[in-house]
Amino acid sequence: MVITSEAVGAATRTLTMGVEEEFLLVNRAGGDLSLCGPEITGLLGDERVKTEVMRYQLETVTGVCGCPEEAGGQLLELRRRAAAAAAETGCLLLASGVAPQRLPGEPAVTPDPRYRELDRRFGRLLARTGTCGCHVHVGIPSREVGVQVLTRMRPWLATLLAVSANSPIANGHDTGWESTRYKRWTRWPSAMAPRVWRSAADYDAAVCRLIRRGKAIDERGVYFHARLSCRYPTVELRVMDTGLSIDDTVLVTGLARTLVGLALAELRAGEPIRRIGDMRVAAALNAAARHGLGALTRDPYTGRVVNHERMLATLLDRVADPGPIAGLLQRFRERGTGAARQRAMWAAAGSPQEFARMMADATLRRG
């Protein structure tokens, strides 16, 4: 059965979205991580800019948006507000999946009861992680539909990761990975791709099992790469690194929305789910984290082994009006991935301080 591109377009146009971005804070003078997150959120007093687990992190949260361009406007405003407040404390705001320099040796957990419980239960793991992701929420009509969408998203998670990869530098050197964040993040016992669940009840049972077995402290701590939000009527796509520039995040927001629209169109048409084993999904994600867009995966429609550039072309073929996404992708190809641009800055920088300043400048750019 063939799903028309018009059906995909109709399913996509009505979808709302929201975006959460996580950032690093570094000292302007030395380029090392700064523990000023709570101080900065106190200065701002803006509920859209929040503390994160570690004091060297901040999170920004957009409102509900009707299109990726609207999200882009909010993302720009929030990054500028957070960066301006950081500057008042002598800090820079950096959009990177992991800290380029070493993590701090001193305790860095934000003084919040939930984060302290995470520290008590997973302290050693927490101290070695400190990652920053981009989470895109896309509205869904019901949790039952959401579970079906999650299953249909499984073949596309590695493509979203490859596009968003933005963490090649860690501990003061090039790791050889496009997304070191993914490598670290998957140390968490609940950080995995969604399974093939038949119903929302099956999904809830899987969440409860992880909590009961001590692999998460609560529902929010179940870190599926795509999940049902426990706070909003959305599916939450969490596999992506924080985008280096605003346009990087606008692109993955548009891709996420389009993929959810594709899943909804297939579901409404009664198209069977293309079943891909858990090990194959995990292998594709690991390859995307290591090799980025050139990594190999399996096209869910043809079964052929292809790279993620080909997967993006397949997606465009199934969209009624590919112009907006195609334009974002063309500009993305011209500027390169976040990982490639980080490496170029790392090679050009004469010191950690200069690299931090270059990263901070890129964080506030559109392109």
Rank of each mutant, 00 (worst) to 15 (best):
E6I: 10
A11C: 05
V19Q: 01
E21L: 14
A29R: 14
D32W: 07
G37N: 05
E39K: 11
T41G: 04
M54G: 09
L58G: 08
E70C: 04
A71Y: 09
G73V: 09
Q74F: 13
Q74Y: 14
L76C: 04
A82Y: 10
A85C: 06
T89K: 15
C91E: 06
L94T: 10
G97W: 00
A99S: 14
P100G: 06
G105W: 02
E106R: 14
R114G: 10
R114I: 02
R114P: 08
R116Y: 13
R120A: 14
R120E: 15
G130M: 04
G133A: 15
S142H: 09
S142Y: 12
E144S: 12
V145E: 15
R154I: 13
P168Y: 05
I169C: 01
P189K: 13
A191K: 03
M192F: 10
A205R: 15
R227E: 02
R227Y: 02
Y232L: 13
Y232C: 03
D247A: 15
V250P: 02
L255S: 05
R257S: 00
A263T: 04
L264W: 06
R268N: 11
A269Y: 00
R275I: 13
R280M: 11
A283V: 04
A283P: 01
A284T: 13
N286M: 06
H291N: 08
G294T: 13
R304M: 06
L312Q: 01
A320H: 08
P324H: 12
T337D: 05
G338I: 05
A344W: 00
A348Q: 00
Q353W: 01
A360K: 13
A360L: 14
A360G: 06
A360Q: 11
